[in-house]
Design a protein around this nucleic acid. Sequence first.
DNA 1: TAAAAATTTGAACATAGATTAAAAAATTGA
DNA 2: TCAATTTTTTAATCTATGTTCAAATTTTTA
Lengths: 194, 194
Amino acid sequence: MKLSEKKILKKKEEILLSAITIVNRKGYDGATMEEIAAELLMTKGSLYYYFKNKGDLMYQCHNLVLSQATKELEVNLNEEGTAEEILRKMVVTHINYAIEEKETFNLIIEPRQMFNEEQIEPVLKLRKHYSSLFDNVIEKGIATGEFHAKEPIIVRMIVLGAMNWIQQWYKPTGRMTKEELEQYFADYIIKLLK
Amino acid sequence: MKLSEKKILKKKEEILLSAITIVNRKGYDGATMEEIAAELLMTKGSLYYYFKNKGDLMYQCHNLVLSQATKELEVNLNEEGTAEEILRKMVVTHINYAIEEKETFNLIIEPRQMFNEEQIEPVLKLRKHYSSLFDNVIEKGIATGEFHAKEPIIVRMIVLGAMNWIQQWYKPTGRMTKEELEQYFADYIIKLLK
DNA sequence: TAAAAATTTGAACATAGATTAAAAAATTGA
DNA sequence: TCAATTTTTTAATCTATGTTCAAATTTTTA
């Protein structure tokens, strides 16, 4: 790869990171091209040198964050341990993303409302893969007899829903630390599966 | 109340119902004043005779649906039965709203992003009251010894989150009927509390 | 039925951002 | 160094809806 190509990739990444910051603060609609550029001491026109349009930029923000989270989950999944131990780690990973990358991670947004035709398929695929990692660990636990669930898919949906909901009410200043929260969530999720 | 006042209230309600339909189909941003009016064979200008602006209309949509849901929950809560029986009914009520009134019921939307300064307080209050109804039944169950929970508030958040998440994936055409779904959810929620 | 009041229309207006493109500036490389 | 290339700026344009308001229409009232 040429130097110039590397440079352009680096710049794209800078823009993405800036966009992610702003989107996490204000949401997709609230984030303006102006503000994203200003964060990097640029003007909005320049962004179009690197990204086709705002939709493209937003799409890449979501993808980047979701891909990172997926990678972390995959690491968790490949570590040694019982299904319970692995699932606990995954719960922590997921909750961290849900809290720290609130808006860009946001699995709650309706992809069909946010993204265009070409973007939807990859987004849905990424999300599906992400969910499937939870299915994996649940199935593993069922196979070893650690877990029991008549409808593992339903349990996984309950688990994901419960965790995604956290971003609606979590305040860093609340009476519970993020770590305590993660602990409790993990406990209750395990209970659901025993 | 004068006849003319009744008439105006009736018209307001018609507009609200139309707006709720459109919003449930397209979301708050996607619903245009034009389309809401068209549904009633009016032109958008007329809407401003009844509502101050779009924000006001959207606010009242959310309020109406949330208030109705609240009323139903309150009926559930006042019926005879064990905490478990009552909670099961409430789960059904909630899931029905989450599915059928998807976008207007949507407790997931960030109120601060959607509503203005005067509207936020009442919305948050309504939502808080709504949640508290679940706290009530959980506490009742704990008091009678039916339920056990070290952190009842956390359990309630898990329960609400899990239920609100349904609207992300539920399809009327899926392999499970709404009723089966409600059944499973209720079972798992009770398990969490035993 | 005719004046007054209430309601609706339609067209103009406002505006917030996204997008574009030509010119300017900065960088590269021979 | 200086011409070519890449990047950035600037400012104009576009667009989609929300909003307003005077005029037209419909309904009510006496």
